[in-house]
Amino acid sequence: MTCRPAAQFVVITEVRANVGMAVDDVVVEEQLLTIGVFARRSRLSLRALRLYDHLGLLSPAVVDPDTGYRRYRDDQLFTARLIVGLRRLDMPLSDVARVLSGPREVGVEVLEEYWAAVERRLAFQRGLAERLGESLRGGQTRFPAFTVLEREVPETILLSEIKAVDLPALRATVTGAIARLTRRAADHGGAVGGPMVFFHGEVNEDSDGPVEVGIPVRTASAATRREPAQLQAYVTVTRAQWEWPQILSAYDAVEEWIRQHQRTGVGAAREVYRVGIDPVAAEPAEEVCDVAVPIVAARR
């Protein structure tokens, strides 16, 4: 029995020569690592290597067509160790792909944007943990400074879509629905207000809503519904406060105001967006939406 070296081996690819081919064109030599050695040196499991190959993140340099053996180049260790580091930051594989697919300066931008979002999320979660601790100790729960106001909202004709959606898919689902509904609004006299996102249930790691996305339109049809006239308690949210999970503080502030003022919420919480404002591109201090909850009017 012939044993292959543990660390590396020499692949000799024979190319059948056509008439006139030089001898140097016939044999190509390259030093490659077995998948086991590459796994140990990269600190990735065999399962992870197969997954990253399937996703196109890190494909073997050579796959034997007869045996299926995978071989890697030594210089692929940089990519493998980069993936290891990014995953230790809990970076989603979709973002890892963005880091790897473009020039290095683009990868740096993706990494910096991702980590800035992580720090914002951690800051929110730190504050939330402190508020929940105060509540458990019997103290009064504090919320970030939001000014809760009331307003009367007239009946609205709404062209909408409703769908169960999990948290990772929420933004893409809402963005896609707004684009579709905006196009369809032309058949209903055009849009007469900014997009609305209704949360008929929680959207988090354990719950999938459902979520309804709507565009206020001028004329009704079988495809529209009527949102009744109502009194709302609401807060205005800036771009800096809009990112998840920071925006949850706005919902908490409205709910706490309702409780403290002994009012009753009577409908789905919703985000009402400004006309012509793209929240993603807005400046940090720019107002992008209101978080609102329909309430029962106070007794006289």
Rank of each mutant, 00 (worst) to 15 (best):
S42V: 05
L82Q: 11
V10K: 09
V296Q: 09
D166M: 09
L181R: 12
V110S: 09
R151S: 06
G107C: 06
L32K: 14
R218Q: 15
D66F: 02
S207M: 11
A172W: 05
A185W: 05
L136Q: 11
I83Q: 04
A129C: 04
A233Y: 04
M21H: 14
I178D: 11
L93K: 02
P144C: 06
R121W: 02
P5C: 11
M91D: 06
I215T: 07
V19R: 15
G201E: 09
V288M: 01
H261E: 11
L248Y: 04
V62G: 00
S135H: 15
R274G: 00
E113M: 07
M1I: 08
I162M: 12
P65C: 08
P210H: 10
P294V: 02
L86V: 10
L136P: 00
A97T: 02
A123T: 08
R120S: 02
L122K: 07
E287M: 00
A285L: 05
A282W: 01
C3M: 15
Y114P: 06
L122S: 05
L86G: 04
T147D: 05
R4L: 13
V84I: 06
Y114W: 15
A223Y: 06
R299T: 14
L51S: 02
H54T: 08
S45Q: 12
I157S: 00
D95M: 09
A97L: 06
Q76I: 06
A282V: 03
L167M: 14
Y114G: 07
T238Y: 01
V197Q: 01
A48Y: 01
Y52N: 01
V293F: 00
R184A: 15
R88E: 14
M91E: 02
L128H: 09
M21T: 15
V197F: 05
A285M: 04
G201Y: 04
R16D: 10
E112C: 09
R47D: 10
S207D: 13
G139A: 04
E287N: 02
R299M: 11
V197I: 11
R299K: 14
P65F: 07
E155W: 00
Y251N: 13
R184F: 08
G276R: 09
T156I: 12
T175Y: 01
R270Y: 04
L89A: 14
F199P: 01
Q260S: 10
L248H: 02
E134A: 15
G267H: 06
R183V: 13
Q230I: 04
R226L: 12
R87E: 11
A177K: 08
G36K: 13
R43C: 09
A298F: 03
A164F: 10
R120Q: 01
V26D: 05
T147K: 03
R121Y: 01
G85M: 02
R299V: 13
A7D: 14
G190D: 08
R171V: 07
R104A: 15
A39L: 08
L44V: 10
I215L: 10
P5S: 13
E243M: 08
V106L: 10
V84C: 10
R104W: 08
Q8L: 12
V27E: 14
M196Y: 07
Q260D: 13
V288G: 03
A229R: 13
G267E: 05
L128K: 08
V28M: 14
A145E: 11
Y69P: 00
G209I: 06
